[in-house]
């Protein structure tokens, strides 16, 4: 292995570690929402600082890599995509932290009927799977898997689009739990942003591996 390759492996491992941590933050968020575990929600908020610290470390490692190795072609695309994916992952961790704050803010567990009616848990679990599959796609250089994210993001968008009307139903049906309904609506908005960040990561994986820029491109009308 060349010196350059070993630096790339180190950077990849650091990004993999960041990804693991973000996945763990998401898993804990799901668990704390389903089991109404406020301690776990607090843990997610505490660990956010750790994610931020790793983000800065990876940014610095990328800067060093560019300055010292002056990468080109696939190596350049790798480091550029690592910078962006690192930032996207940090944003996802921010979102998990935001959801955890909503969990901490209520006194009793969220009404399961509200969660069910607005598809919040389903949506959260879809988004968590997306982030995990992206890690798999990045690690095993699988752009086909990365490309599945775009359709899956549309499912999240569609749940998000319907959320306002469903929230109004819940406000009528559960007038004593308006705070729950409004928090669940906010959680859904946040999950939708996990989908957006996942889409960005998928685009970066395709850029890195296939040298194709697909962001901001709309499908041509047939």
């Amino acid at each position: 292995m060349t010196h350059l390759d070993s630096e790339i492996t180190t950077l990849k491992n650091e990004l993999g570690y960041m990804w693991e941590l973000v996945n763990s933050q998401l898993d804990k968020t799901v668990q704390s929402l389903t089991a109404f575990d406020k301690d776990l929600a607090l843990e997610v908020q505490e660990h956010e600082k750790r994610v931020n610290a790793i983000e800065i470390n990876i940014d610095k490692a990328c800067e060093d890599f560019i300055a010292l190795y002056q990468p080109v072609a696939t190596d350049l695309r790798f480091v550029l995509s690592t910078l962006k994916i690192n930032n996207n992952l940090e944003r996802i961790a921010d979102i998990a932290c935001g959801i955890a704050e909503f969990i901490s803010d209520v006194d009793t567990g969220f009404n399961p009927d509200i969660l069910e009616h607005m598809s919040a848990l389903h949506m959260l679990s879809l988004s968590v799977e997306m982030v995990k599959d992206l890690k798999e796609a990045h690690q095993h250089e699988n752009t086909a898997l990365a490309r599945t994210i775009f359709k899956r993001d549309k499912v999240l968008d569609s749940i998000n689009d319907k959320a306002s009307n469903l929230a109004m139903d819940c406000l009528d049906r559960f007038p004593d739990q308006r705070k729950h309904t409004l928090h669940v609506l906010s959680i859904i908005r946040k999950i939708e942003r996990i989908g957006d960040q996942s889409k960005n990561i998928a685009e970066e994986i395709i850029f890195y591996l296939d040298a194709k820029v697909i962001k901001h491109k709309k499908k041509k009308k047939e």
Binding site: T2, V72, A73, A211
Partner: peptide
């Protein structure tokens, strides 16, 4: 050439491999 070379030999050369 330096961002997306078409030939794998070019890629190997410019990336030092």
């Amino acid at each position: 050439i330096f961002t997306n070379p078409k030939n794998s030999k070019t890629e190997s050369y410019i990336t030092g491999r």
